[in-house]
């Protein structure tokens, strides 16, 4: 893949924080192709969230170049090329579910009827029909995260940046959300970059898993995931799934992720 048709192309990205010069990222090289589902995995403090924020132009790299859709990250952000989903749903308590989903559309100047039509489509996509008049705090954690995903998808961004979106959910809900996310991904065909610290989640979801190490944050290996699509509950019982989980785990260990370290 050449850098030209890459959705994201990172060259020599480094990021140091503060006067003490803590190196969060060092010499990151990464190309993400159209329609890929990329997971960033690594121990806490490996800079995976920072890398996601650099791609989204929420954090400026100390050095290196980054192109998103062939543009600078800043330009891509101003062009609203990506949707962001955080670990917390970050819904606005004072807005109904429908109005939360419509928030980006409001900011982008869509008129009322277009917003309403789009919200209806998205409520259907994330299977929350009938909850449009509810307030966020009346929903379960999984439903809140579905609202956050619908909001990120509302303006059909080419790129979806997700920072441990299911990290706060219980295992059962999380696996269900994984399946739903894959269904949505296959329906909309956008590119996803997904931060997680769950090995099985990364393997289950991704087309490639990017393994990172801490101090300094570097990419140590990239594991292609050749599990067939569509993935189902049975995928997790496939012997190939276990092989890949093992491969990613060994890559993490080789990168020193099992060394004793304080929480970052």
């Amino acid at each position: 893949m050449s850098a030209n048709d890459a959705v994201v192309s990172a060259r020599g990205i480094s990021k140091t924080f503060g006067k003490a010069g803590v190196t969060a990222l060092q010499d990151i090289e990464l190309d993400v192709g159209q329609g890929e589902f990329i997971s960033l995995i690594g121990p806490s403090g490996c800079g995976k969230s920072t890398l996601l924020r650099v791609i989204g132009d929420l954090v400026e790299p100390s050095s290196g170049d980054i192109l998103v859709n062939g543009k600078t990250a800043r330009r891509a952000r101003l062009d609203r090329d990506y949707g962001m989903v955080f670990q917390a749903a970050v819904l606005y308590d004072w807005r109904t579910v429908a109005k939360n989903i419509a928030l980006p559309l409001e900011l982008m100047g869509f008129d009322r009827s277009m917003r309403a039509a789009r919200v209806r489509e998205l409520m259907h996509l994330v299977e929350l029909e009938g909850f449009d008049k509810h307030y966020p705090w009346q929903l379960s954690g999984g439903m809140q995260q579905r609202v956050a995903i619908a909001r990120a998808l509302s303006f059909s961004p080419a790129l979806l940046l997700m920072d441990e979106p299911f990290g706060a959910l219980d295992e059962m809900t999380r696996e269900r959300m994984n399946l739903e996310l894959l269904r949505i991904w296959s329906e909309i065909g956008s590119t996803v970059i997904f931060v997680t610290h769950s090995i099985s989640e990364a393997v289950f979801l991704s087309t490639r898993v990017v393994v990172m190490s801490a101090r300094p944050g570097r990419i140590t290996s990239i594991v292609p995931i050749d599990l067939p699509h569509p993935r189902t509950f049975e995928t997790r019982e496939d012997p190939r799934f276990f092989e890949l989980v093992t491969e990613v785990r060994e890559a993490l260990h080789a990168s020193g992720a099992d060394a004793v370290e304080p929480d970052a």
Binding site: L58, G83, F86, L103, L107
Partner: peptide, 24 residues
């Protein structure tokens, strides 16, 4: 702060951040 970051990700103008996030 995450909500502010979210508004940034939408390239929202400061005026919108004020009325749609900070005031509510």
């Amino acid at each position: 702060p995450a909500a502010v970051e979210l508004m940034q990700s939408y390239a929202a103008r400061e005026w919108s951040v004020f009325w749609k996030l900070r005031v509510p």
